[in-house]
Simulated assay, not measured.
Amino acid sequence: MIVRIMGEGQVKLDDYHFAELNKLDDELLEAMESGDEPGFRSTLTALLDAVRRLGTPLPDDALEPSELILPSPDASLAEVREMLSDDGLIPG
């Protein structure tokens, strides 16, 4: 799956990594629902770091369609809330 981190670029992630990412996504949702800004910030950072660590960066000139778009590291709680689906940021 091709994942874009807004403002950074794209990475290719194998499907088997999504179990780990979904755990972080659940933690992010929990922090958002409780209004825990520090928890939200640290979990968003952990989620994006995991995507960077587990994924293979695509070249900047690659024109692959992104199947998943994640917020930038400095996104606000309100901005991320607007990006959410029923499953959170990461489907599944």
Rank of each mutant, 00 (worst) to 15 (best):
L29M: 07
G35S: 07
D74L: 02
V80P: 02
E82Y: 15
P57S: 09
I69Y: 09
V11F: 12
D60L: 08
G55S: 04
M6S: 11
L28S: 11
G9R: 04
I69F: 12
A75Q: 01
V3P: 04
P59L: 02
P91C: 10
E27Y: 15
M32H: 03
V80H: 05
S76M: 00
P57Y: 13
D74N: 04
L48S: 00
L24K: 05
S85C: 12
G7L: 03
D61K: 01
D60F: 06
T56C: 07
M32W: 02
N22T: 14
T45M: 09
D49N: 12
A46C: 02
G55L: 03
L24G: 03
E67N: 09
D60I: 07
G39R: 13
E27Q: 11
A62R: 01
D61C: 00
G55K: 03
T56A: 10
E20S: 09
L58W: 02
A78M: 11
D26W: 11
G92Y: 14
D74K: 02
A19L: 13
L84I: 15
L44I: 01
E8D: 08
E27D: 13
L47E: 02
E37S: 10
G9K: 05
F18Q: 06
A46S: 09
F18D: 06
L77C: 06
D49R: 12
L29R: 13
H17F: 14
E64F: 02
E37P: 08
L24H: 05
E30Q: 12
L84M: 14
A78P: 07
E33C: 10
E27H: 15
A78V: 13
R53K: 13
F18Y: 15
G9P: 04
D15M: 14
D87W: 11
E79G: 06
P57H: 06
E82M: 13
V51R: 01
L28C: 08
G7T: 02
L63G: 07
T43A: 07
G92R: 10
S85N: 14
P57I: 12
I2N: 08
E30P: 03
H17S: 09
L58V: 02
G7Q: 05
H17N: 13
G35D: 10
G88T: 12
L89Y: 06
L58F: 03
S66P: 12
L21C: 07
F18R: 05
G39V: 15
V80N: 05
E8S: 03
E20T: 12
R81I: 03
H17L: 14
E67Y: 15
D74F: 02
E64H: 01
T45A: 08
L48V: 00
D14G: 11
E64N: 01
E27R: 14
G9M: 04
L84R: 11
G9L: 04
A31M: 09
G88F: 07
L70T: 01
R81W: 07
S85T: 13
P57N: 06
R81H: 09
V11K: 14
I90D: 04
G35Y: 11
L70W: 01
S76D: 00
D87I: 06
L70Q: 01
P38Y: 12
G88R: 04
A19P: 15
F18V: 10
T56F: 13
E27K: 15
G55H: 02
L29V: 13
Y16N: 10
L21P: 05
V80K: 07
F40H: 00
D49S: 08
M1Y: 11
R81T: 09
H17I: 10
